[in-house]
Design a protein around this nucleic acid. Structure first.
Lengths: 195, 195
DNA sequence: GGATCCATGTAATTAGTTACATGATTTA
DNA sequence: TAAATCATGTAACTAATTACATGGATCC
């Protein structure tokens, strides 16, 4: 259900092709919703039949069969009404935690490797998020720039502020994971010494 | 794929019925994997045909058609080999963040309500996790007690330690969310004053 | 005897993954 | 001209949700 609104949200900043969306929803680590092109293309067509988006063939001439999707007024309305509704929190499905609590019969090195992977994973994310926050503050973050360009000046501070908040939240999260993994690793060292 | 191993993991502590599992995977907030009974019952039968679990009708006599599933040796082996493999991190799908970054055209009260809901949500979780951590430390957490009872004494510290770690991690996470929401709310207050 | 909980199931649908497939355009 | 990138699609499958359905046991 949320892919729909993630797409509408993205298109509320600027029109884009399925390929653009698939790139942003797929490769880019700094984005908040992952999806693959095989899900995005059919969904866009579905949204078009619903009247929430409209598409035009790319102005690149023939040969290029690229389609550009833009939000319709109806899509804008539907997006706004979804945004206002309270969020339903996704049920917890945490593979790492499941592994951790049942790893108690495994060799200590295995546990350590898991914790080190955990730390590494979030350190990599931290680097990405930190870079993006820097770009937001400098006003060179591409999607921020585009959104500011299409919105009234008196909403610019809010637009920037919310994106900064979101990114700060991500940074706080990954820092928490890194610190936790470090604490866990030093606890584990103590466990080994006992053997 | 992970439901399979969440079930095997759970059954590695003690045999249980589909109903027990559905209760633990459904209602209980403190658990790491959510699933509904309509997914669990068929999955258990599938695992039985795979030979990873075995079931016996409950010893409650006839009338009660309750089936108790226990892990087989093959299931134990498969679980351990899964536990050792590096975790593949789930792709990010974060509805709250998607909402937040597109809420910039909505009234400030709407944004505030979202942030307050966020804070409330994680405060409720914090209460649950804190209580569970207390029970772990006191040695009265039911699933810890059961697991300790079936494992050699020299692994007791590891069993307890890992569960404590997992719970501390959850607590750290929710605290991060609460602090973030508080910071966001006070930033938002400043925004309102400007109007 | 009615409500609540225990206990297990199926059917229909939506969401998401993985793999296969095709062809145009750009770059080296 | 070969490789990489742009661009869009389908098919098969697995995972998860939602709703419907049934009946026994226990409690009041």
């Amino acid at each position: 259900m949320s892919l729909k609104f993630a797409l509408l949200g993205f298109l509320s900043t600027e029109a884009a092709s399925g390929f653009d969306l698939a790139r942003e929803f797929g490769e880019s680590v700094g984005w908040f919703w992952f999806s693959s092109h095989s899900q995005i293309y059919p969904e866009l067509r579905r949204l078009e039949t619903e009247g929430l988006v409209a598409s035009t063939p790319s102005p690149g001439g023939p040969g290029k069969q690229k389609r550009i999707y833009r939000l319709t007024e109806q899509g804008e309305t539907e997006l706004q009404s979804w945004l206002e509704q309270p969020t339903e929190y996704a049920p917890i499905r945490d593979v790492e935690r499941v592994k951790l609590v049942f790893l108690d019969q495994a060799p200590v090195e295995v546990i350590r490797r898991h914790l080190e992977d955990h730390k590494k994973h979030y350190e990599d994310l931290l680097a990405v998020y930190t870079q993006q926050l820097r770009e937001l503050h400098r006003g060179v973050f591409p999607r921020l720039v585009k959104r500011l360009a299409t919105r009234p000046r008196n909403s610019h501070e809010m637009i920037t502020g919310l994106k900064v908040l979101a990114m700060q939240g991500n940074i706080a999260r990954v820092r928490t994971e890194i610190h936790w993994a470090e604490d866990a690793l030093s606890w584990l060292e103590g466990m080994e010494d006992q053997t």
